[in-house]
Design a protein around this nucleic acid. Structure first.
Length: 290
DNA sequence: TGGCAGGGGTTGA
DNA sequence: TCAACCCCTGCC
């Protein structure tokens, strides 16, 4: 068993691991010690320790190629950031968290996570992810359950899924798992499709609309131009770029971001989003207002 | 302590 | 275009 585990050290620069793992793109990571995170890559448990200039990884069946693909540490961040718009919000977002990165995650787990994300906060999505593992996953280590594949969920029932705190999302996830099992939609085919067709293919899945499809394309398929627009982003774009407009619809936001943020708009979005969410750069929502 | 409003979305009418 | 869908959180 011990021989299944490998240890790797990887030199990394400009990589804020904590921000990256907690910025709402992945839901399977927990901070377990000073600079130490435990989570999952390609169906296997992994721990990552952030050293001063390196990552020290320990994982079951972990190879450097698999880790490099997941963490995307070869990305030339400086070159990519140069393509961002040179405006004040973007400058502040970049200054706030200079090493934020995009991961490249497993398409199925990402799809399932974001189907479950509708009207849920990050903490709750993590709870659902954990519950699905414990209820339907394989125990690959004592207390460590892998994320269940779609066949397993399709073989369960909607009621079983509801017990994992999914609420009305249980119907969506169950149906999507069933569609994949039946071959109605292929996540593998999405890989080679141009982005508009890839989006259409993903949106055939129940529970996957415009926003969820964008998240899957950005976080699992490496389509870094795709800019998911949710209520937070819409509100942010409204306040930061069009403060004089009385109303600003999601459609208006989508049209604006597609043109304005360039070939790595998805990356830019992650910076803006993380900054807004953690600093509270926007006025609070009406409910939270004093 | 309990009631209540509202939330990172999608669906179907 | 809009209500309905679950359920958790935080406020009062």
């Amino acid at each position: 068993m011990v021989s299944e585990y490998t240890q790797l050290t990887q030199k990394v620069t400009d990589y804020d691991l904590a921000a990256t793992l907690s910025s709402g793109q992945a839901f399977c990571w927990d901070l377990t010690g000073p600079n130490e995170w435990r989570g999952w890559i390609a169906g296997n448990p992994v721990s990552v320790v952030r050293g001063s200039d390196c990552f020290r990884l320990t994982g079951r069946k972990l190879t450097r190629d698999v880790a490099a693909r997941y963490f995307q540490w070869d990305t030339d961040l400086a070159a990519l950031i140069k393509t961002f718009p040179q405006d004040e919000p973007m400058r502040q977002a970049l200054a706030y968290c200079p090493g934020l990165r995009l991961l490249r995650q497993d398409p199925w787990e990402t799809t399932a996570n974001f189907i479950c994300s509708a009207m849920k906060q990050i903490v709750q999505i993590k709870q659902i992810n954990r519950a699905l593992r414990q209820r339907f996953g394989k125990e690959v280590e004592p207390g460590q359950w892998s994320f269940p594949d779609w066949r397993t969920l399709a073989a369960a029932s909607e009621a079983d899924l509801r017990e994992c705190k999914l609420g009305f999302r249980a119907k969506h996830l169950f149906h999507a798992a069933w569609q994949l099992t039946a071959g109605e939609v292929s996540l593998e085919a999405v890989e080679s499709l141009p982005t508009p067709e890839a989006r259409k293919e993903l949106m055939k899945l129940r529970g996957v609309g415009e926003k969820v499809a964008s998240c899957i394309l950005l976080f699992a398929y490496g389509r870094q131009d795709v800019f998911p627009v949710d209520v937070w982003v819409r509100r942010a774009i409204h306040q930061l770029y069009f403060p004089k407009r009385r109303t600003f619809t999601e459609k208006q936001a989508r049209i604006f971001v597609a043109k304005y943020f360039g070939p790595y708009g998805g990356y830019a979005q992650q910076y803006l989003f993380h900054w807004i969410r953690t600093v509270g750069a926007l006025p609070p929502s009406p409910r939270l207002r004093g």
